[in-house]
Every structure is written in structure tokens, then in C-alpha cells.
């Protein structure tokens, strides 16, 4: 993508003018309004979903038609903590962006998803800042597969995602100051310790099969698939010459994807306006729809992205329709 040394804010300045014009000032202001209770409802719903799924596995551990979907549901719940953490990173949970509760909540969300809040914050903000630059966007530089082979891409759908991700995070952290690196190391230790403790306790108290259904399968089998498919809908199929399309516009789905991915399927829209809370992204999308149509921005679905990624072996961060 062009503009290697320029931030996305700079490159997309005129684009934002257009977008603001298309949405309207008052509507855009309303879209930025934060409703902490709505965030709490979503977080609560995810916790209840996880608890129900765990309860179902504990009650009917021998029925695969129950424990398999329940394990998948727990995997989605684990993933959802990364999305909730993402809201904290952008300071859109509480009415005051500077509320200290953001930090507390960030730690609570980071640990179950196995992340360091400090790492995720810096990594993600750098990603926003340098979107479109191959060497400065950390997600693109460190995490995107550099080997465009099906077998290598498929690794991201397996537990191999974890060493891949941690290696990427470690490399990105090479640019950080010592204080931040120490904070990251501490937080990561806590997150990994928490997961190991949960796994060990479950194994010890309930046996390996139950530990696998309640924790190992959701975390190590389901999570990588959910994470990777979600990532496919972000910046892999793009138009390098057009900052408006440095993300993929996902087709509006029946409630499924909004519900499963907590609206992270509106990733392009999120990059346009990172201060809009996730529960308003559907409204943002609706506000932008006429503009998308007028501009001719193509929509994609997850199935077609998966096929292009693995079946047609498209390279990341390119225009998959023209390649």
C-alpha cells in the first residue's frame, strides 16, 4: 500500500471528510455516545453464555451433540474477551475516556483471553496509526503470514497460532521501552498462569476428558479458528491504492456474525471511526451504506474469503478480486 511513512490519519484525511459529510455531524456525534450499561449487558451475556455452555458440558459430558457445540460456544466466549478488551483499548466503555475503570476492566478482559493488556493496547494503537504500511503496522509486519502457502496459512487455524502470535508479539515489543516490556512480561505471566491453573484444576478435579471439553478444546482448537476467520475479514482482501478500502467490507449477515463476533465484523467501519462503541457499529454501517454503494465498495462474506484464502491461495493485503 502506498504512503509507507504516513499514518492512516494522514492518508485518510480526505476520506474522513467525505465520510463525515455522508453521515452528518449530529448523527456522527450520536454514534460516538457511550452507554456503559450496553457494554455491561454484552459482557454479561457472554459470561452467561460461557456458564451455560460449561453447565451443559458438566451435565451431559457423554453427549457429543451437546458438548461439541458447548465447547465451541466457550471458544467464542474466550474470543469475545479480546473484542471486549478492544473496546477498553479505544476507551469507549465508560462515558469518560480517562476513567480509571477502563484499566481495571482491561486486566479482567485480558487475562481470560490470554493477553497482556499493555501489549494489546500498544500493538493495536500502532496498527490503527500505521494501517496500510507493511513495515510499521505490527499486525501486518509480524503476524500476517509471509509464506503464501496453503499449509502455512492453515497453521493459523490450529494451536500453532499461539507460538506464531507470541513470536509476533515478542518481535513487536522489541521497539518498546523497558518499562513497557516489563509490564507486558508480568501481565503475560499472569494470563498464562491463569490458563494453566484452570487447566490443571479441571484435570485434577474432573479428569482429562472434562478438562479438554471445558478448556483445552475451546482455547486451543476453537479459538484459533474463530480468531483467524475473524482476521480474514479485516485487512487481507483490500484495494492497496484506495485508503477507503484498506479493510474488507463485510456483507451484513443475519444476526449470526454480529452476535458471534460482537460486531468486530464491521472492522473497516471501525477504522474509519475508532471512537464508536461496538454496539453502535451496525448503526454506523447503516449510515455509511449509501456511501459504500455510491463508491462501489464490494462486500464480502466469510465463506468466500475462506475460499479465496485457502482454496485460491490469495496473498494477504491485496485485491483478491483482481489478483
Amino acid at each position: 500500500m502506498s504512503g509507507e511513512a504516513r499514518t492512516y490519519d494522514t492518508v485518510a484525511a480526505e476520506l474522513r471528510i467525505e465520510l463525515k459529510r455522508a453521515i452528518g455531524a449530529e448523527r456522527l456525534k450520536a454514534l460516538h455516545e457511550r452507554a456503559p450499561w450496553r457494554h455491561a449487558l454484552v459482557a454479561g451475556r457472554q459470561l452467561v453464555l460461557g456458564a451455560l455452555a460449561a453447565g451443559a458440558i458438566l451435565t451431559w459430558p457423554e453427549r457429543p451433540w451437546i458438548w461439541v457445540p458447548a465447547s465451541i460456544a466457550i471458544g467464542f466466549v474466550v474470543f469475545s474477551f479480546t473484542v471486549l478488551l478492544h473496546e477498553v483499548v479505544h476507551r469507549v466503555v465508560f462515558e469518560r475516556p480517562a476513567s480509571p475503570w477502563h484499566r481495571v476492566l482491561g486486566h479482567l478482559y485480558a487475562a481470560p483471553s490470554g493477553l497482556s493488556q499493555s501489549q494489546f493496547t500498544r500493538w493495536h494503537l500502532d496498527h490503527h496509526e500505521w494501517l496500510g504500511t507493511p513495515s510499521r503496522d505490527p499486525k501486518r509486519r509480524e503476524l500476517t503470514p509471509k509464506i503464501v502457502k496453503r499449509w502455512y496459512k492453515a497453521l493459523y487455524l490450529t494451536p500453532a497460532l499461539f507460538p506464531i502470535y507470541f513470536r509476533a508479539a515478542r518481535r513487536a515489543a522489541g521497539d518498546y521501552g523497558p518499562e513497557l516490556r516489563h509490564a507486558i512480561a508480568r501481565e503475560r505471566l499472569v494470563a498464562i498462569g491463569l490458563h494453566l491453573t484452570i487447566a490443571a484444576l479441571l484435570w485434577w478435579r474432573l479428569g482429562f476428558p472434562m478438562a479438554a471439553k471445558l478448556h483445552l478444546i475451546p482455547v486451543f482448537v476453537v479459538f484459533p479458528v474463530v480468531f483467524t476467520v475473524n482476521r480474514l475479514g479485516q485487512h487481507y482482501d483490500v484495494e492497496p491504492g484506495d485508503p477507503a478500502r484498506w479493510g474488507t467490507l463485510m456483507r451484513k449477515s443475519p444476526l449470526t456474525w454480529d452476535w458471534l463476533y460482537l460486531w468486530s465484523n464491521y472492522h473497516l467501519e471501525h477504522h474509519y471511526f475508532p471512537g464508536v462503541p461496538f454496539y453502535r457499529l451496525t448503526e454506523l454501517r447503516a449510515a455509511l451504506d449509501p456511501w459504500f454503494r455510491e463508491r462501489g465498495v464490494p462486500e464480502r462474506g466469510y465463506a468466500e474469503l475462506l475460499w479465496s484464502w485457502l482454496g485460491r491461495n490469495r496473498a494477504p493485503h491485496t485485491n483478491w478480486a483482481s489478483s
Partner: peptide, 8 residues
Amino acid sequence: RRFAERFP
């Protein structure tokens, strides 16, 4: 908000 993001 940007200050809060960058300097939590």
C-alpha cells in the same frame, strides 16, 4: 480520547 488511549 487519544491521550487516554496512548497514556492509560
